[in-house]
């Protein structure tokens, strides 16, 4: 029983780490550009399939290194061509656009790579369980979680200590004033979008190593990631971090006792938190300090 619980908590943390990675990117884009990016799961798929396509040439490590920035470049083009013209309009426009884009990416992936799942090979030493006792903790799972936390730490450093990051945070508070201080806010939004998509691409590569590839692999992560943002408090990146881990673990633990409710519990948790703290857990605090 304890082992089962531990297994599911571990699972929940790993899934939660993915929610966090996705939700941070969504949050960055939402906060600075007021775009609810429904295509975010699509970019995860793109990241995964780019890794799959290039790994025969560059290997697993090369794919891990190259796929996220390549995904970010695709994100830059999409932002420039499709999303930028919609800034300043009703957020409904960009929501509909990214919603459609999500379907297009899924269909395009199916068209290019076929509807069946694809395996994505990881280095053999990472695939080993750590011990017979804790069979569910493979090296790869630890590696994934470590990568997620490295990405989060780098994001924190970017936002806290670089001028780009400081301007992004300033822009989420008052973009007009950032522009009046001479900052090219179009470029700022593009770069910020690319950072968010980079994180989605990284999620894609990491998820591919654990679950293999499928054109629909992004869909299941999208709703929980939105909920992670809402639970944590819109506008707060630490909130997003806590929110993602929280709902991951909650659904993992629920899987032990009421397997059928493991998905519903996410929504229940959101409802309970919003009833007690309408702005989410970190809503009052605002941006990361």
């Amino acid at each position: 029983m304890t082992l089962l619980l531990l297994f599911n908590i571990t699972n929940g943390l790993i899934v939660g780490a993915f929610y966090v990675l996705m939700a941070l990117g969504l949050s960055l884009i939402l906060n600075l550009s007021n775009v609810i990016n429904f295509a975010h799961g699509g970019f995860l798929v793109i990241g995964g399939y780019i890794a799959y396509a290039i790994s025969p040439y560059v290997g697993f490590w090369g794919a891990l290194l190259l796929a996220p920035p390549l995904t970010a470049v695709i994100g830059l083009v999409v932002e420039r061509v499709l999303i930028r013209p919609l800034y300043g309009r009703d957020p409904l426009y960009s929501l509909l656009l990214t919603f459609g884009l999500a379907f297009m990416i899924e269909d395009l992936t199916r068209f290019i790579f076929g509807p069946q799942g694809k395996p994505f090979a990881i280095p053999a030493f990472l695939a080993q369980p750590l011990s017979n006792e804790l069979f569910f903790i493979t090296g790869y799972r630890l590696f994934m979680v470590a990568m997620v936390f490295v990405a989060i730490a780098l994001l924190f450093v970017l936002l806290r200590y670089t001028r780009l990051g400081i301007r992004i945070r300033a822009g989420t508070l008052d973009l007009e004033t950032v522009a009046a201080l001479g900052i090219n806010v179009r470029l700022l939004r593009s770069l910020n979008f690319a950072v968010g998509i980079f994180l989605a691409g990284l999620s894609g590569v990491l998820a591919a190593g654990q679950l293999g590839l499928e054109p629909t692999m992004g869909t299941g992560l999208l709703m929980p990631s939105f909920i992670a943002i809402i639970v944590g408090g819109i506008g707060s990146l630490p909130g997003t971090l806590v929110g993602g881990l929280l709902i991951g673990v909650a659904s993992g633990v629920t899987a032990v006792f009421f397997p059928a409710a493991s998905e519903a519990v996410i929504y229940v948790l959101m409802a309970v938190i919003l009833l007690t703290r309408p702005r989410g857990l970190f809503g009052e605090e605002g941006m990361m300090g």
């Binding site: 300033a170 508070l173 950032v178 201080l181 001479g182 300090g289």
Partner: peptide
């Protein structure tokens, strides 16, 4: 600007790093 519009959640030092150099 009118009303100063400083970035309330950013530190003083961070506020000073926003403008174009």
């Amino acid at each position: 600007p009118e009303g100063r519009r400083i970035f309330a959640n950013l530190s003083v030092e961070e506020n000073l790093k926003v403008p174009l150099e």
